[in-house]
């Protein structure tokens, strides 16, 4: 059967580990532990939700999503709208906005550590001082409990916006020109065309972009590991960072598995919500 290699691969490396995560989440497994393996029911879940670092991690992921998703989606939409016309040099700008996407996140994280360097010499500090006409006082972004997470948000925004932009641009270009012509005959101005043609036609694309960005927000790891190690005082810790800390650094496999399951449940909820929203639209149409 020619579909066997792929299906076996999925079963062995996705389905099996996933089921194993669920099973392990109910155990007390630790690597290299002398204690016998026991089934502890929901004990791991009780413990992680009682752990202030983990609840902070969930909160940080949620905050990251609440800030980055609207901002990045809006930015992608604005960029796509600017690019969706036949003007000289448009291709060059599209290349430019998409370029950060080909940069690996780990490299981006390392470069932005220097951009966020403390003191008036730091790039971001100097830039903010310039645009605020001298009102900004230098901060040590990555060691500041209030600024560390926003710094990581900005880094992610810069790297990821181009990806969403391309998807939105494809959505824009799929809107039939007749719709705009009809709107113009009805006497609709540019603004009205945007509200009554562009946005409704773009609805499913936007729902998809929001879904992908939200899921990415909950998968956040690389930037945190490299830029802040979850600190200062858990200000930037994430579910994935906590899971790796538990399973990898402290060898508490069962605890890490329980956290993975929580992550998956969140992702599942988001996907379910997207499907419902997209279906509603189809029923209306």
């Amino acid at each position: 059967m020619i579909s066997m290699p792929a299906l076996l691969g999925l079963l062995a490396f996705v389905v099996a580990p996933f089921l194993l995560a669920v099973v392990l989440g109910f155990s007390n497994l630790r690597l290299g532990s002398p204690l016998p393996l026991e089934w502890v029911g929901f004990e791991q879940y009780r413990r992680i939700f009682a752990d202030p670092s983990f609840t902070r991690a969930l909160f940080n992921n949620l905050l990251f999503a609440l800030v980055v998703v609207p901002l990045q989606t809006a930015l992608a939409l604005v960029l796509a709208l600017l690019l969706n016309r036949r003007l000289r040099g448009i291709a060059l700008f599209r290349t430019l906005f998409f370029m950060p996407v080909v940069f690996p996140l780990s490299l981006v994280a390392v470069v932005w550590i220097l951009i966020f360097a403390p003191g008036p010499n730091g790039t971001m500090n100097a830039f903010l001082e310039l645009v605020s006409l001298g009102a900004w006082t230098p901060h040590d972004f990555l060691r500041d409990t209030r600024l560390a997470l926003p710094a990581i948000m900005l880094t992610s925004l810069w790297q990821g916006a181009g990806f969403q932009m391309v998807i939105v641009l494809a959505g824009l270009q799929a809107i039939p020109a007749e719709l705009y012509e009809a709107a113009m005959i009805d006497g609709a101005g540019r603004w009205q065309q945007f509200w009554h043609v562009t946005l409704p036609q773009l609805r499913n694309t936007m729902i998809f972009v929001v879904l992908v960005t939200t899921i990415l927000a909950f998968r956040l790891f690389d930037q945190v590991q490299i830029m802040t190690q979850g600190g200062p005082h858990d200000a930037t810790t994430t579910v994935m960072f906590e899971a790796v800390e538990a399973a990898f650094t402290r060898q508490q496999v069962a605890r890490g598995a329980a956290m993975s399951v929580v992550l998956f449940v969140v992702v599942l909820l988001i996907s379910w919500l997207q499907r419902r929203l997209a279906r509603q639209e189809r029923e209306v149409a």
């Binding site: 579909s3 299906l7 999925l10 490396f13 996705v14 389905v15 099996a16 580990p17 996933f18 194993l20 995560a21 392990l24 497994l29 690597l31 899921i215 998968r219 790891f221 994935m240 899971a243 790796v244 399973a247 990898f248 496999v253 890490g256 598995a257 956290m259 993975s260 399951v261 992550l263 998956f264 992702v267 599942l268 996907s271």
Partner: peptide, 23 residues
Amino acid sequence: MLSLVLAVMIIPIEAIAVPLFYL
């Protein structure tokens, strides 16, 4: 199998990294 593939699509590597690491 097709519905399995569609279902598996939403599982990110992050959600299976820990058990896979254990295996």
